[in-house]
Amino acid sequence: MTSGDDEASTAMDHSVRSLLRHFATTTAGVRFTESPGHLFLATATDHLGPMHNSALRTDPTAGPEAVIGAAEEFFGRWNRRFVLWAGAHHDGDLAEAAARHGFALRDNSRGSAGMILRTPLRTAPDNGTALIPVRFRSQVETFTDIVADAFAARDHPQPAGATRSLFTPARTLLHPRVIAYLAVIDGVPCGAAMTHLNGPVATLAWIGTRPAYRHRGVASRLVTACVGESFRRGAQLVALQSSAEAEALYSRLGFQEITRYARWLSPAPANPHGSTD
């Protein structure tokens, strides 16, 4: 791996950690802990997804057995299964340990693509989509409705209730480090996206279009707006995690794949009588 690759993968890891911390510290009902070697986040629901019930090794020198053991102890308090992230660039030993412990790959063996963009995008063609910054609580509710509908209709659907739980209370979006937009066509809110700013890295997330409005350039308009505002506010690059179905869109817009993150699903907790409060 070259120094440029090292820099890019470090930026990707920074992006992942920053976004998890943001939801951990702004979302209701989240239990969160972080040490020099790992970050664990248990959400209000038992859904298993990238932002729900996740375990992340934050130091590649931390022993994989120690990280897995600490995660099992943490999530076992609430009788929870969890998703263990493993980056292709430095978590090979963690993935091997997960397999030994009976973890199963989540969704697909390739994992999600970690992608970055280093320059602003050209303005997307005007397709009749109006873009509205999210600044009020009523707009947060609309944003949440849109992404809940969009993610429930994906190839690997996420329950609408699990998505909604991440945007309660409204400060998750009405935060000084968050840029969020709604897309509106003919007066109907149909798309949403956000970026989270943390130093030189902005993380693009929750890009969603209502199913009836897909393939009309809505996502491209939203991504272009979020990216442009992120660079205007000091970001030096924009990072994202892409599902398999969206990789072609982001590649076409100029994002480059840096690494991949496999997600390993833990076995059922060893303690079936853990706390559920």
Results as ranks from 00 to 15, higher is better:
M1W: 02
S3W: 02
T10K: 15
M12C: 14
M12V: 15
L20W: 01
A24Y: 08
T25G: 15
V30T: 09
V30I: 15
T33Y: 05
E34Q: 13
G37P: 04
G37Q: 11
H38D: 06
F40G: 00
A42Q: 07
T43G: 02
D46S: 15
D46I: 08
P50W: 12
P50C: 12
P50S: 14
H52Y: 06
H52S: 03
H52P: 00
S54C: 12
T58V: 12
D59V: 13
P64T: 13
A70N: 08
V83M: 11
A86Q: 04
A86L: 06
H90Q: 15
D91F: 06
G92Y: 01
G92L: 07
A95D: 04
A97W: 01
A98D: 02
R100A: 14
G102E: 01
A104C: 13
L105P: 07
D107Y: 08
G111W: 01
S112I: 10
A113W: 00
T119I: 15
R122Q: 14
T129V: 10
L131I: 01
V134F: 07
R137Y: 13
I146H: 09
V147G: 02
V147H: 07
A160W: 08
T163A: 08
S165Q: 12
T168A: 14
T168H: 14
R171F: 06
T172H: 06
V178N: 11
I179G: 00
A180K: 05
A183F: 05
I185H: 09
D186Q: 11
A192C: 07
A193R: 05
M194Y: 08
N198V: 10
G199L: 10
P200Y: 10
A202V: 07
A212W: 13
G217C: 03
V223W: 00
S230R: 03
R232Y: 03
A235C: 06
L240D: 03
A244L: 14
A244C: 11
G254S: 12
F255V: 05
Q256S: 15
E257Q: 13
A262T: 11
R263A: 09
R263H: 10
W264T: 00
L265T: 08
L265D: 02
